[in-house]
Amino acid sequence: MKLTLRVWRQKNPDTPGAMATYELDGVSQDMSFLEMLDVLNEELIVKGEEPVAFDHDCREGICGACSLVINGDAHGPERTTTCQLHMRSFRDGDTIDIEPWRASAFPVIKDLVVDRSAFDRVIQAGGFITAPTGSAPEAHATPVPKADADYAFEHAECIGCGACVAACPNGAAMLFTSAKVNHLNVLPQGSPERETRVLDMVAQMDAEGFGGCTLAGECATACPKGIPLFSITAMNKEWLRASRKVKR
């Protein structure tokens, strides 16, 4: 396939960026989107140009490192991560726009790489349990109802990639935060910190400068792991309950 790529190039956080156009030939339908960018970068290096910086790690759709807004969609046209997106989703002769996640809480570091450490700080505010864990406990020691286990697992699938923030018209981190809150709050291990978790994580989310929810639903559409929009509803409920219970 022959493609026209329009890629956001930005030297560093302080220099304004712009879209740059590249023609790329010899792309196979079986390549992943990131492999296609690898090919582009090899060509750029041979020509003595700076390669395009982009985030990636596992390339298996499990780590959450890859990003990219492709033709206006976070992670591109399929419901999966950019690393698991293949060039067969595009046609020969296509023009593809590739942009970084856009949100003021996710500043661009270089080209397509953004700083997602705001997510780490939201997790540090309460996305954990404080019980000492040690080696894996006996699975039957703490009974968990099947429905709760499924609910926790559905939310534990969040890989923290930030597609929800990128897709949200308000740059909100509600879907991410709600996935983490719901995952732990439904489990017995998470229940001692049920109230402080949701209050602290939401406060940190606000402090990082993420926007608010207007129920546009873009986050859940973009999520490669299918975290549902109702996770946000459930977090609202947890937050309302906690703010009534906890006096601070």
């Binding site: 206006g72 856009r102 740059g171 926007g211």
Partner: peptide, 16 residues
């Protein structure tokens, strides 16, 4: 909300 998303995407599509 507007401050949290200052830069628009170049490639936009009507969604909501």
């Amino acid at each position: 909300d507007i401050k949290a998303r200052p830069q628009k995407y170049v490639h936009t599509k009507p969604r909501m």
